[in-house]
Each structure stands twice: as structure tokens, then as C-alpha cells.
Design a binder for these strands. Structure first.
Length: 475
DNA sequence: GGAACTCGCCAC
DNA sequence: AAACGTGGCGAGTTCC
């Protein structure tokens, strides 16, 4: 049985992938043009209102005095000059080119309430100008035909353009709703989005073969982020409570700590970040603790009306510096004990690249050229994970044609597939995609050594993409 | 007047 | 020893 993929296999995947994606591009995504026009007007009103509010502030008076008829409230260059040169505020953060930063996060640190109007303008402009405008510009006869490129990305992932439907807002509920309310399946159909669960972590386990990571991904009872949260926040006194509740996830006050761990430590570490950044992110962003020394009454509340500040101080962590030191130990344990094999793989893999000047993905693609360490350890996971999705896409495309579906593949977002589905075929389509994604692909690629799973979201018939709900098999 | 750049911000 | 990976895109700005 052949295991090692070749360049020819890689070529074959992209050849078939390009054809399948081209079919999706031709199919298109339906756009509610009138809705976009109406929504643009509403947003323009909100933007004008926020601008007018800002024009009542002292900050604007200074700005306008300096720039006069050249005043442009969309110019970050001007804003930075006013804040950091005229008003002599010490920039909390610098941009790559060394000027004072004016991104949202930095502005919020300045303690100038009037900047909230700038923030509001930016938010609504992003929605109007980046999304709704590009939808209207790119549509023909009420359908979008985004391009899915396979030739532009260093990792052999895809990219998407004209319009890019791979970056439509999701986390910001208001932005998500406004943008996705514009997008529909064909009349009488559902939009179905089927995404792989934890695909990149799963593929990473296939690449580095760490037994503990494989265990976490194989055993449904286990909880990697929960275990890490217990370790980072020293929740050992609460183990009984956590067990009785059924996991760290089940107690709201601890779920926050689990989210902080997942998004502030585990994922950033997998991408190559390090403990000092993680410590600041977890303590300051997630737990709302200040820089410097900590007090008992500071930070978010955990159980029994206790603050996280009090809890950490009780465990000997009395300042951000203490916490950074603590996270240093956590990081060491993470890569040497908990995921020691993964840690060793990272070292070996980078060494090997330094010797050879290239490395190959499990799917047969070759990455060569000058790369930083973090690139070298990330590409094999990022590219390969996308190839699982693309292979699924290709196989579903073949079945769709063979079985003459009324449903169509319409797009792809790195680890998820978008379909436009006839109601009579809903169950069959989801079953088919699930079978291909979780059974067929691991059968073809023997190097997939952890179970893969998918989740399906479905819109009501004639509902917009904003109305999607988790598919429970009974719609 | 367009190319190339910076900055900011959206996704995975 | 070093320190978060991959994209697209809009607005402003600078260079030629």
C-alpha cells in the first residue's frame, strides 16, 4: 500500500480541485440587491451621525485647527499626528514602520471617550464599503461568482476574491447579520455549510503523531483546553465541582477561563507564539487584570464571588510579571511533557528543513525557499488541512454530477463547504458530504490517524445566510 | 494618473 | 535564538 504522496498526486488534486471550484464559481451565490442598497443607506446615516457627534468634540477642534480644509477623518496618518505629535500622548503601541498606532485596540487604551465615534464610523464603514459595496459591484443578475484561487498561497491553501467570501464577518453579531442577510441560495433552496471540526489540530496530530494529542482527539471524554485551563489557573481545589458539573465547559465562570486558555494560549502556541505574549493576552484581555501589581478585588469573577485576582494572589501570583513567569513554566511543560512528541517534531522538522532547504506535505506538495521557523512548522499543517477539505469538495462534486443533483456546491472557506441545496435532497446531501469527509477521505489517505467529524448548518428555505441553524436532522 | 506602499480589519 | 501562521481589500499616502 502506497503511503507517500508524490508531486503527481499533488498536481492531480489541484487539477480536479480547480475544475470542481470552477463549477462552483459558475453556479454562484444569490444576492439580495435591493437589501444591499437599503442597508447601505441605513449605514450611511449611522456613519454621518457618528461623524457629526465627533465634530462636536474637542479632539475634532484640534484636528481641524491643524489640518483646516485638508481635514480628513478617515486618515489614520492625520489622527496619529494629532494624538502623538500635537497632543503629545505617548503611543501605547507602534506600527511596523515605527509610527504611533491608531488601530482600535490602541485607541481604546488612550482614555479619550470621543474616540468612540471614530470607532463607530470605522465599524460601519467596514461593513458598507468592504462587504455590501463589493457585493453590489461584483454581482451579475443578482448572483455573486467569487473566484477560488489555488495558485496564490505559500502554504498551498486557497484564496478567494471578487468578492472574497472567505472573510465575511462572523463573530461580530451585528456585522454578521447585516452582511449575511444579503446572501441566499436559489429560490426555494437552503444554504448548507458543512465544516470540519478542529481540522487543523487533527491534521497537526497526523503530522507530528503526538500520542497525547491523538488521545485528546480520539477520546470524546477528554478536553484538552479544559485540562490546560485547570493547569494555567490552578483550579485543583475545584476538581470535584468541575467533575460533578461534567467539565470545565459546564460552569460559566470557568468556561471563560477555558476560552481564555484556548484562544490565548493553546492556539497561539500551535502557531508559534510564546509565553510572554500569552500571559499578557490571558491576564489583561481575557481576565481584565491590569499590568503591574494586582489586588484582590481585580479581574473577572470566578465562582463563589471570588475574583480571578484574589484567586491568583492566593496561589502566589501577585503581578503580571509573576504570571509571565508562571506561563513560562506552563509553556515548558506543554512542549516537553504534555505534547513532548509534538515539541520534538517541531525541532526535528525545522532542523531537517535547514539541512535540505525544503520540505514536503503529506499530500505531496513541496515547500521550498527561505522560510522562518514558524512558517516551517505551520505550513505542513495549514496546507494539508485545506487539502482534506478540497479532496472532500472534489469527491462530492463527482457524486453531485453522477447522481444529477438539483443541489450545487457553491463555495468553500478553508475547512468548510458551502452548498445550495434543494429541500428534497437536504438529508441526502448532508449524509453524502459527511460520509465523504469522515469515511472516504481517511480511507484514501492512510496518514489520517485521528477520527474526523463534521458539523452542518442549514438556512430555512429562502432564508438568508444570517438565518443558518445547526442541522439536527429533522428540518 | 497609476503603481506601490502603509495601516487597519475581516476570515480561517 | 526568537517570538502568531495564511489570505483579500479599502482608504490614505507617496513615488514616479
Amino acid at each position: 500500500m502506497k503511503i507517500e504522496a508524490t508531486i503527481a498526486d499533488a498536481y492531480q488534486l489541484f487539477h480536479e480541485g480547480a475544475l470542481a471550484l470552477a463549477r462552483a464559481e459558475r453556479q454562484g451565490i444569490r444576492l439580495d440587491v435591493d437589501y444591499c442598497e437599503r442597508q447601505k443607506k441605513l449605514l450611511t446615516n449611522r456613519i454621518d451621525r457618528a461623524y457629526n457627534k465627533f465634530k462636536e468634540t474637542k479632539l475634532y477642534a484640534i484636528w481641524n485647527k491643524v489640518y483646516k480644509d485638508k481635514t480628513n477623518l478617515d486618515s489614520n496618518h492625520q489622527l496619529g499626528y494629532i494624538l502623538y505629535n500635537i497632543m503629545k500622548i505617548e503611543p501605547p503601541k507602534l506600527t511596523v514602520s515605527g509610527k504611533g498606532a491608531t488601530d482600535e485596540d490602541t485607541l481604546m487604551q488612550l482614555d479619550l471617550p470621543e474616540l468612540k465615534w471614530i470607532k463607530e464610523v470605522r465599524r460601519y464603514k467596514k461593513i458598507r464599503d468592504t462587504y455590501l459595496d463589493s457585493f453590489l459591484r461584483e454581482q451579475t443578475d443578482g448572483y455573486l461568482h467569487p473566484f477560488f484561487n489555488l495558485h496564490t498561497v505559500r502554504t498551498y491553501r486557497s484564496s478567494c476574491q471578487s468578492p472574497n467570501i472567505q472573510n465575511i464577518p462572523r463573530r461580530d453579531t451585528e456585522a454578521m447579520t447585516i452582511c449575511r442577510k444579503a446572501l441566499f441560495a436559489r429560490p426555494g433552496h437552503h444554504i448548507v455549510e458543512i465544516d470540519y471540526h478542529a481540522l487543523e489540530v487533527s491534521i497537526s496530530a497526523c503530522v507530528n503523531k503526538d500520542p497525547n494529542l491523538i488521545r485528546y482527539l480520539t477520546n470524546p471524554e477528554s478536553d484538552m483546553h479544559g485540562d490546560m485551563a485547570i493547569q494555567i489557573f490552578m483550579l485543583h481545589d475545584y476538581l470535584d465541582m468541575i467533575e460533578n458539573a461534567g467539565g470545565v465547559n459546564k460552569i460559566d465562570e470557568f468556561k471563560v477561563l477555558r476560552d481564555a486558555t484556548k484562544n490565548g494560549f493553546v492556539f497561539p502556541q500551535f502557531y508559534g507564539d510564546y509565553y510572554a505574549n500569552n500571559a499578557v493576552s490571558i491576564a489583561c484581555d481575557w481576565c481584565k487584570l491590569p499590568k503591574g501589581k494586582w489586588r484582590k478585588n481585580q479581574g473577572i469573577t470566578i465562582v463563589n464571588n471570588k475574583t480571578i485576582g484574589e484567586h491568583l494572589i492566593e496561589h502566589g501570583i501577585k503581578s503580571l510579571d509573576d504570571f509571565i513567569e508562571h506561563m513560562k513554566g506552563i509553556e515548558y511543560d506543554f512542549w516537553h511533557n504534555r505534547f513532548g512528541v509534538y515539541g520534538q517534531w517541531r525541532e526535528d522538522w525545522y532542523r531537517e528543513y535547514q539541512k535540505k532547504g525544503y520540505f514536503d506535505l503529506l499530500t505531496g506538495f513541496r515547500c521550498s525557499g527561505i522560510m522562518r521557523r514558524n512558517e516551517v512548522i505551520n505550513y505542513p499543517v495549514q496546507g494539508t488541512a485545506f487539502h482534506c477539505l478540497l479532496k472532500t469538495f472534489v469527491e462530492v462534486d463527482k457524486i453531485m454530477q453522477r447522481e444529477n443533483w438539483d443541489s450545487r456546491l457553491i463555495g468553500q472557506i478553508h475547512d468548510s463547504i458551502l452548498l445550495d441545496v434543494h429541500p428534497n435532497e437536504l438529508e441526502h446531501v448532508i449524509k453524502t458530504v459527511r460520509r465523504v469527509a469522515t469515511v472516504k477521505i481517511p480511507r484514501i489517505w492512510k496518514w489520517i490517524i485521528v477520527p474526523l467529524s463534521v458539523e452542518a448548518d442549514v438556512t430555512p428555505v429562502d432564508g438568508s445566510w444570517a438565518d443558518k441553524k445547526e442541522y439536527d436532522g429533522g428540518i
